[in-house]
Design a binder for these strands. Sequence first.
DNA 1: AATCCGTGGAT
DNA 2: TATCCAAGGAT
Length: 333
Amino acid sequence: MNYPYRDQFASALVTWFEREQRDLPWRKTKDPYKIWVSEVMLQQTRVDTVIPYYERFMKSFPTVQALADADEEVVLKHWEGLGYYSRARNLQSAVREVHETYGGIVPNTREEMSTLKGVGPYTAGAVLSIAYGVPEHAVDGNVMRVLSRVLNCEEDIAKPKIKPIFEKAVMFLIDHNNPSYFNQGLMELGALVCTKGKPHCLLCPVQAYCLAYQEGKPEDLPVKTKKVKNKPLHYAVVVHRDGDKVYVEQRPSTGLLSNMWQFPMYDNFIGEPIMQFKHVFSHLTWHIKAYYVTTPPQSEGGSFKTLQEIEQLPMPVPMLKILDFIKIEMENL
DNA sequence: AATCCGTGGAT
DNA sequence: TATCCAAGGAT
């Protein structure tokens, strides 16, 4: 590293974070378990979205033991609407591992943490630094963007080989007196000041130490290529009704929306749809036509349940839309 | 290395 | 409307 502002950068960043940090629920604690839960929820998910989920989750599962003892279905219900549902299953699996193998104490080394399901390089570093004060890197999307500017890196940060470079950079820059505030400061700076569109350089505490700013083109960074093609899929979702009960089934334990509940999905169906809409995922789009029938389902494995029972089951957002519709429909019977 | 895995807000 | 993408990880 030939970056000349190491100590000044770290000092200015930590001082700024002490003064400007947002008041967030998970910043009221140093409980490693609670920090861990927050970090998993925050993966690829916005702060404002996470807050109510985090509050509700902590009321129901305030400790490692509480989450370890919970039913998976109840945990998934708490995750409903957050997306990436494998996070919830992996988190509970890992928490059970901590409960059984580590006596309920979240391990404080990267080696041990990294063995836990759903804990990757970022989450391990975040928990270690924030909860335990261990000087470990926690490089997320914010940090990639901030460092690409501070270090004036013109490489394509979408390339997998770049991230380890920034992890080494953090280990070089990190404030050993306050790894927690250094890492959080880096992320907070990316969220509030060093934003992706037009960064607010006039408000930046490390403007004087930013190589891209010195070059006069911080808004041209980072360079990031990517193209994800979204594949359209057409489905018929059929609501089989028998009296006051409706047929629901659980999705497989692997793949898209694993273990979530749904109304049966078919490639095609004859009749007049009660509603139709599209639901966009990261890499595919469901084009849904929903149908209402009083005939038995073709599929097996599910069962007829009342709406009150169905409301207790974790369902993905597109199924919740259909559920809302038939709730109104069946109230009028 | 490239894909898969959700959702909703911002532009 | 289309695109990006937000405190990533698993395969």
